[in-house]
């Protein structure tokens, strides 16, 4: 096989061809928004089998020390955990691909596990203008009185299905969209961030 053919099948970032690391948008002052491309993380949907939610709750608590998040809540600490995404359904997140490989076996008979690591693109949005930026496109109240660290919303941004979860009170958000919408989503995100000045950086790839 020629080298050129091999390169066609090389893994590539969901953001490749769209996001360029560096400072963009408004050039004066410090960047108001930091966009960290979260490549190399693991994602999987976990869907409880009918009537097995209590068994799943007991299992994740016993094995991982996690609380199964209630609707609208997430439980992510040290880059690992679960984010509620629909009734009886959660998104498992972890910093490395290997971290979720055991899930199908661990949850066998209790929940269906589907790998989404290459199916979603995730960007971390932080910086002093992070909330103001997201408020331009998210039709959910992100004010701290109604949305705080440990909260999640499945909604749409610029007509693109998106899930976001807030990680801390800075505030810092992780935002996931279907990978095939990366280009359109990046176009909205960078247009919206330009007025604040934004810094794009590559997250640690594993």
């Amino acid at each position: 096989m020629s080298e050129a053919t091999a390169n066609v099948w090389a893994p590539r970032s969901a953001w490749a061809g769209y996001a360029k690391p560096g400072r963009h948008g408004r050039t004066q002052g410090d960047a108001g928004v930091r966009l960290t491309l979260r490549d190399g993380i693991a994602l999987a949907t976990v869907i409880a089998a009918d009537g097995q939610t209590d068994a799943l709750r007991a299992l994740v608590s016993e094995r991982y020390g996690w609380t199964l998040p209630e609707p609208g809540k997430s439980q992510v600490s040290r880059e690992r955990g679960l984010v509620w995404s629909a009734p009886g359904q959660w998104l498992a997140v972890a910093e490395t691909r290997d971290a979720l490989r055991e899930l199908p076996d661990v949850f066998r008979g209790i929940a269906a596990v589907t790998d989404q690591s290459d199916g979603r693109a995730v960007v971390r949005v932080s910086g002093p203008n992070a909330r103001t930026l997201l408020e331009k496109g998210v039709a959910v109240d992100l004010h701290p009185r109604s949305f705080q660290a440990g909260r999640t919303a499945v909604t749409s941004i610029s007509h693109i299905g998106a899930q976001l979860w807030q990680l801390d009170d800075a505030p810092t958000y992780d935002l996931a969209v279907a990978r095939s919408f990366t280009g359109s989503f990046w176009s909205w995100l960078t247009e919206a961030a330009a007025e604040f000045g934004y810094e794009v950086e590559q997250g640690s790839a594993h």
Binding site: P71, G72, A86, P87, A139, V140, A153, V154, T155, S156
Partner: peptide
Amino acid sequence: PHCGERDNGEF
């Protein structure tokens, strides 16, 4: 009942 109050465009 799961997500809270949302714009009707989501439905």
